[in-house]
Design a protein around this nucleic acid. Structure first.
Length: 219
DNA sequence: GCGACAG
DNA sequence: ATCTTGTCGC
């Protein structure tokens, strides 16, 4: 797929935060898409003592969830991990991986948070806005926000609240298994995001998209 | 000041 | 993220 928004990424914390403050207003929290046939899972791994960043994208058919295409890219790591600025570390490599794709995915499931972020601009929002594709944040651990305990059955969820605002949800994707953290990335509502995450999750805790991307990014 | 802090 | 074996439970 073609990537338009390829301007340089900030190298320092101050500029990165300023860019988040500028771009956060572009996030759309309503459903804005048609029929979805291609869903992509995206993940990033590191090697060589953190010097190499490897991004992987797995495109699956929807709702069949069969692997249709994959893309893997390696680059030097240029931004260290700073809580709240994960996207600056990972998105440059992700854009390269997306660019190599023949199929243009219609929904992106990102490893990490979307609106569950101190400035409401986690990696799923950042990526969604840059490529203008609906996106969802799917995180494996808690970042910010308060919530009540989630029912044990698959499909149960509870809103995550920060500063009086619903920013995402904690979702039980498998009965009796540790829940995951879902939030809007771009052009999708929280409710719809939860439903798509559940539709992409079959027999494991994480969506099939994420599982494929995980595997590709760490091999 | 102290603890928390996506991947 | 990454370093890593066995082990508890269905």
């Amino acid at each position: 797929m073609k990537i338009d928004q390829k301007f340089p990424f900030p190298t320092d914390v101050e500029t990165a935060i300023a860019l988040q403050e500028k771009l956060r207003h572009q996030v759309i929290t309503e459903d804005q898409f048609g029929t979805i046939k291609y869903v992509a899972g995206i993940d990033v791994g590191y090697s060589d003592s953190d010097k190499i960043t490897q991004a992987a994208v797995a495109v699956l058919s929807f709702p069949q969830l069969e692997l249709l295409e994959q893309s893997i890219v390696k680059r030097p790591t240029y931004f260290s991990y700073v809580p709240g600025l994960l996207s600056f570390r990972e998105i440059p490599a992700i854009l390269d991986a997306l660019e190599k794709l023949n199929i243009t995915p219609e929904l992106l499931l990102c490893d990490g948070q979307g609106l569950i972020h101190p400035r409401r601009f986690g990696i799923a929002c950042h990526l969604g806005v840059l490529v203008n594709i609906p996106s969802i944040g799917v995180a494996k651990s808690h970042y910010i926000g308060q919530y009540n305990s989630v029912g044990l059955e698959r499909g149960n969820w509870q809103p995550i609240i920060d500063e009086e605002e619903v920013i995402g949800a904690i979702v039980r994707t498998r009965t009796g298994v540790k829940p995951i953290y879902v939030s809007t990335g771009h052009r999708i509502s929280l409710i719809t995001a939860i439903n798509y995450v559940l539709k992409c999750t079959t027999k494991y805790r994480l969506p099939e998209t994420t599982r494929w991307a995980d595997k590709l990014a760490s091999n």
